[in-house]
Simulated scan of single mutants.
Amino acid sequence: MPSVMGLLEERERAARQRVEALQADLREAEAVWERFVIAGEVVAEVLAEPRGVKGPPGEVVGERPARVVGAVPGSVVPVWREGLAASVLSPHYQWLMNALAGGSGVDAVAMDCRELAVAVGLEPVP
């Protein structure tokens, strides 16, 4: 008949091995997750850069232009700052901004989602 202490030590050893295996799996999963986070950040940076912009470049920070000149469909919305024009937004966002401004492109009015949907020609659904 095995001793109680021997049984406890055996179970403790098995539990420790399981913890070590799970910790290794966790480290591997965290590395995969980190790669996806970095990939997402890189894609966001690439999409935020203006493409095919002609004319003089804006001010340069490092090797990249700091000023956003124009946007294309799928662009990331830039952080607002003073003097930023609506032209830096993708065409779909410009369409929404124009609808909020009542077509004038100047003063935006408050709208709920249904009113905005109607303004851009969509069906107002709950």
Rank of each mutant, 00 (worst) to 15 (best):
R51K: 15
P78D: 12
S104H: 06
L26D: 13
E20M: 07
P50M: 06
D25M: 11
V118Y: 01
M1H: 07
P78Y: 07
V46E: 15
M5V: 13
L89K: 02
D112F: 07
E20H: 09
L96P: 01
R18H: 05
A108E: 04
A29C: 07
M1V: 14
L8W: 12
P56L: 05
G55E: 00
V69R: 15
V77W: 09
G58D: 03
E49C: 12
P2L: 14
S75N: 02
G102K: 03
D25G: 05
V76N: 09
A48C: 08
V37H: 11
Q23S: 11
Q94V: 02
E123V: 10
V53R: 00
P73W: 07
V69S: 13
E41C: 09
A108R: 04
Y93K: 06
V61F: 12
V53M: 04
G52L: 09
G6L: 04
V37T: 10
V61N: 06
V69P: 05
A31Q: 08
R13I: 02
E82A: 09
V77S: 13
A44S: 10
G40W: 06
V43I: 12
V37G: 07
P78L: 04
V72G: 07
E20D: 11
G62D: 11
V42H: 01
C113S: 15
G70C: 06
G6F: 12
F36A: 12
L122A: 15
G105I: 03
V43M: 08
E9I: 10
R13P: 01
E9M: 12
E20G: 09
V61I: 15
W80Y: 15
A108M: 10
S104L: 08
A117V: 00
A29Y: 08
V61G: 09
G121Q: 01
P78I: 10
V118Q: 10
G105M: 05
V106C: 01
E45V: 13
E82V: 08
P124D: 00
A110T: 13
V118L: 14
S87H: 06
V32N: 14
D25L: 14
S75F: 03
R114I: 01
G58Q: 02
R64S: 14
V19G: 01
G105V: 05
D112H: 12
P65I: 09
G6W: 12
G40A: 08
V118M: 11
A85F: 03
C113Y: 15
E115K: 13
G121S: 02
R35L: 12
Q17T: 03
E34P: 00
E45F: 13
E63W: 09
A117F: 02
M5R: 15
P65L: 04
I38M: 14
S3I: 13
D25Q: 03
V88W: 00
P2K: 14
